[in-house]
Design a protein around this nucleic acid. Structure first.
Length: 886
RNA sequence: GCGCGCUUAACUCAGUGGUAGAGUGCUACCUUCACACGGUAGAAGUCGUUGGUUCAAAUCCAACAGUGCGCACCA
């Protein structure tokens, strides 16, 4: 391997290895390889919108999936990570329509017509649809690209139609005239889930109407929508409201439109809240869901006063007709005031439903649409409740259950062109629902398309070749994990579960991991308008994909939103650089290590780092099994930086800078063993740099292909050390204690140096008196760790020499007759204070009789030991103080 | 209104009953032969508030406060 440069340069390395992986088909899933020994692992990507560009949410989501997939490969599983994109009905059609309007190609979609517009959208899709896929590759995503799917692929479209026809024939799909959420901007119906309730600062208008049968008696009514008065067809009060009981059955005069002041019935309905406003409701069946229901109950007329685009029609009266609904609201209020009917108007906060995509208030509107009564509800609800499917974090299962318990029929038709056309044909009164157009003349296909989610809910099996019984389906369905955001738990997750049961008779995935939502560091949602959404590709270019992945994972704990800060990516970059340089250091110590690790040659530090490695393997493996990615990165960070680099490499220098070649070779063997394992532990998180180093350090060289000989991707995931391994290398907790004591002593020794303001680069002499047996190597290690000129063992220690101690031994800092007695006294006094405090704490506990009586023996023991340790320390400090004064 | 979260160092978060932790940031010192994208040391916390259970509470329970999200809504 060529000499490794000082700073890790990510770009060239990332490109190189990604092509290598693709060329060698490292991501390709082969169902025929699945066996008892080689179980299947599968995951389907939440298909990003085909219009999409990579954002931080994708980074979070796909990094997690990639980690899971890469880890599964290293576990020896046959992995399918199935990628694809979503046609995203409204979103895509509006993007392309906007572009066409901007280019002057059309003003309105009708200018082009269905066929031409679809041609434009397809053209646009072919041109831009691959962008996000290329971006995912930059991130390192190990999807099986040979299986890339699109929700409007020919085969996929067939699946969607087949399901429609099937559900229609089973009676789950029906057509009806219902109140739906209508988007006046997109000019289409929406599902309830596509409506976002937003709080608005509105006005509550109070106006009065005269009772026909009792002239001079007036009813006062509160409304936020005076413009809908022309659409009123009744007034409603609560039957138990004594104020109005005598008026029920009578009539009142509708004030607008002025040319048509109809007499409307006053009806009694339980729905009316006596407390709200005046207790009288104006009933507008055409423009409010609740009012529609009231109207139905009392046989009230439905008067539609709005055009589809939200403008008032002629039924609204001459004065309002043609106005936009918001303009009309003001005009209607002004008219009421002019008539003297407006009694007051007050500021009022209410919640209004907005169209998710177009971000305008939706209109409840009576219209003929297709609806779906969800199939397989019970099985879908039960599988989460009984634990067959697991949600991470678990609490989302409650949200899911709640929603599943109150399912409303799903409005699935959309008045759009981009999407799956509804497979229904009409001829007069005849209706034909099937995959193909019926024979004969005069049939017209339903003009509407299906809600986008009508195709995505089939994703887990439609992407695998359903309805054919493909090898892929047999081996990879149900999928193992799904990784997605909790914001689409109803839109997508719940519906996939129902579809899975209905069409595969089984759940679509076993585990669902819900990511947090990515926010900026101030906790705000990322959005284009705030400009707080960084471009992941720029971050990759600047810091590297591994850095972005690591930084994101490190700050994304399970169950919490992610506060993204570019600092995290910088930290990831620094971490990669540290890893790079640790390997560079290894390389500088000479060629490949030969032979096995020799037990006799192992130093305490060697054993210690092996113990720590064992712990790290355990920690990372456990964290990944529990989908705790931030814990896994934290464990890796701690092990590699704080333990391996800060302590082990430093202590190795005692050997590397010495001249015992046998020792050196053995330490190199340990280093290679540890690094080989470390790189593998890192690989799912940092795929690029680990692959480069795996080859650079020659670890791939002597391994069979299936164990990492060709790529670290197929190297075995490190196993937690078993008993025979621990026995062979004499790994047990005595070594932990010994080295912990050593490190403690070193830290105290460095502290002494700092306390006496001796710069770290100045080599000084320490004296050491071992606490137990100690060999030359240990002393040499102390010397390196303390950056000492010498560590002498047998010198006479002058009186008052600053001293620190741990079970490893005592360490003195001789100051060549220049002992600053005052400074040392001060330092010792401070130490003594701390110690006294601890002793007091433990003593008070132990002196409490109920504690002594009731606490378990091991807790008592522990406390007694603590006391003893602190008391010993106090003794030493006191002795030192004594020495100073003599 | 109902439900679900969160509240621990300046910041972001770990911490399921027994010694308050990490990373970042901060302060001081250091270009020492892997790394200044680095090293060493240090300072820094009434664990939201109040009560309760317990020998012992950041941890369990209750109430409250603040904050975020979801669902349902009163026009």
């Amino acid at each position: 391997m060529a000499e490794i440069p000082k700073v890790y340069e990510s770009q060239a390395i990332e490109t190189k290895w990604y092509s290598f992986w693709e060329e060698n088909e490292c991501f390709t899933a082969k169902p025929e390889r699945v066996s008892d020994e080689r179980p299947a692992y599968s995951i389907v990507i939440p298909p990003p919108n085909v219009t999409g560009k990579l954002h931080m949410g994708h980074v979070l989501n796909n990094t997690i999936q990639d980690i899971l997939a890469r880890k599964a490969r290293m576990d020896g599983k046959e992995v399918l990570w199935l990628p694809g994109t979503d046609h995203a009905g409204i979103a895509t059609q509006s993007v392309v329509e906007r572009k066409l309007r901007k280019e002057g190609v059309m003003k309105h979609r009708d200018d082009l017509g269905r066929e031409k517009l679809l041609e434009h959208i397809w053209e646009w899709k072919e041109k831009h649809g691959g962008i996000i896929i290329e971006q995912l590759k930059k991130l390192g995503a190990s999807c099986d690209w040979s299986r890339l799917r699109f929700t409007m692929d020919e085969g996929y479209t067939k699946c969607v139609q087949r399901v429609f026809v099937d559900l229609y024939k089973k009676g789950h799909i029906y057509r009806g005239k219902r109140m739906v959420n209508w988007c006046p901007k997109s000019l289409t119906a929406l599902s309830d889930e596509e409506v976002i309730m937003k709080e608005q600062n509105s006005q509550l208008y109070y106006f009065k109407v005269e009772v026909v049968e009792e002239p001079g008696t007036w009813l006062e009514i509160a409304t936020t929508r005076p413009e809908t008065i022309p659409g009123d067809s009744g007034f409603a009060v609560n039957p138990n409201d004594p104020r109005y009981a005598h008026l029920i059955g009578k009539h009142a005069v509708r004030p607008l439109p002025v040319e048509n002041q109809a007499h409307l019935p006053i009806v009694a309905d339980e729905h009316i809240d006596i407390e709200f406003g005046t207790g009288v409701l104006k009933v507008t069946p055409a423009h409010d869901k609740a009012d529609f229901d009231i109207g139905q109950r009392h046989g009230l007329e439905v008067i539609d006063i709005l055009e589809p685009d939200g403008k008032m029609n002629r039924l609204a009266g001459v004065e309002l007709a043609g106005m936009d609904r918001f303009e009309a609201r003001k005009a209607a209020a002004a008219k009421l005031e002019e008539m003297g009917a407006l009694t007051k108007a007050e500021d009022y906060k209410n919640k209004v439903g907005f169209s998710e995509r177009a971000d305008v208030p939706v209109e409840p509107r009576l219209s003929e649409q297709w609806f779906l009564k969800y199939p397989s509800q019970d099985a879908a609800r039960a599988c989460v409740a009984d634990g067959a499917m697991k949600f991470y974090p678990e609490r989302w299962s409650k949200t899911y259950d709640y929603w599943m318990g109150g399912l409303q029929d799903w409005c699935i038709s959309r008045q759009l062109w981009w999407g799956h056309r509804i497979p229904v044909w009409y001829r007069g009164e005849e209706i034909h629902c099937d995959l193909d157009a019926p024979e004969g003349e005069g049939w017209e296909q339903d003009p509407d398309v299906l809600d986008t989610w009508c195709s995505s809910w089939l994703w887990p099996f439609a992407t695998m070749g359903w309805p054919e019984e493909t090898e892929t389906l047999n081996k990879f369905y149900p999928t193992t994990d799904l990784v997605t955001g909790p914001d689409i738990i109803f839109f997508w997750v719940a519906r996939m579960i129902m579809a899975g049961y209905e069409y595969k008779g089984d759940l679509p995935f076993r585990n669902v991991y819900f990511t947090g939502i990515i926010r900026d560091k101030k906790g705000r949602k990322m959005s284009k308008s705030l400009g707080n959404s960084p471009d992941p590709l720029e971050l990759i270019a600047q810091y590297g994909a591994d850095a972005l992945r690591f930084g994101t994972m490190r700050s994304a704990p399970l169950g919490l939103d992610v506060l993204f800060d570019e600092k995290d990516v910088e930290l990831g970059r620094n971490f990669c650089n540290k890893l790079w340089n640790a390997c560079r250091f290894r390389q500088m110590q000479g060629g490949e290590s030969e032979g096995e690790i020799s037990t006799e040659q192992l130093t305490s530090d060697d054993k210690w780092i092996l113990r720590r490695l064992g712990q790290a393997i355990d920690d990372v493996t456990t964290a990944l099994e529990a989908y705790r990615f931030s814990d896994a990165t934290a464990a890796l960070y701690r092990f590699f930086w704080s333990e391996y680099c800060d302590w082990y490499i430093e202590s190795c220098k005692a050997t590397f800078f010495g001249d015992d070649e046998t020792c050196k070779a053995n330490v190199l063997a340990v280093v290679d063993f540890v690094m080989g394992n470390t790189l593998r532990l890192f690989h799912p998180f940092l795929p690029f740099i680990t692959e480069e180093l795996w080859h650079g350090l020659g670890y791939s060289g002597d391994l069979p292909v299936e164990q990492g000989g060709k790529t670290i991707m197929t190297a075995n995931w490190p196993k937690v050390f078993d008993a025979s391994f621990n026995e062979l290398y004499e790994l047990d907790d005595t070594v932990d204690c010994l080295v912990a004591a050593k490190h403690d002593l070193v830290t105290q020794g460095r502290n002494l140096r700092a306390a006496y303001n001796i710069p770290f680069n100045k080599k000084i002499d320490y004296m050491f008196s071992p606490g137990g047996k100690s060999d030359a190597n240990e002393v040499e290690v102390l010397k390196v760790l303390l950056n000492a000129e010498s560590v002498s063992l047998d010198s006479e220690v002058p009186k008052g020499t600053p001293r620190v101690g741990s079970p490893f031994g005592d360490l003195y800092l001789p100051l060549e007759g220049l002992i600053d007695f005052d400074a040392e006294r001060k330092r010792l006094a401070k130490e003594l204070g701390k110690t006294e405090k601890e002793i007091a704490k433990v003593e008070s506990k132990l002196n409490n009789p109920s504690f002594a009586e009731r606490a378990p023996a091991e807790v008592l023991d522990e406390q007694r030991q603590r006391l003893a340790v602190w008391q010993a320390k106090r003794g030493q400090i006191n002795e030192a103080i004594c020495n100073l004064s003599n």
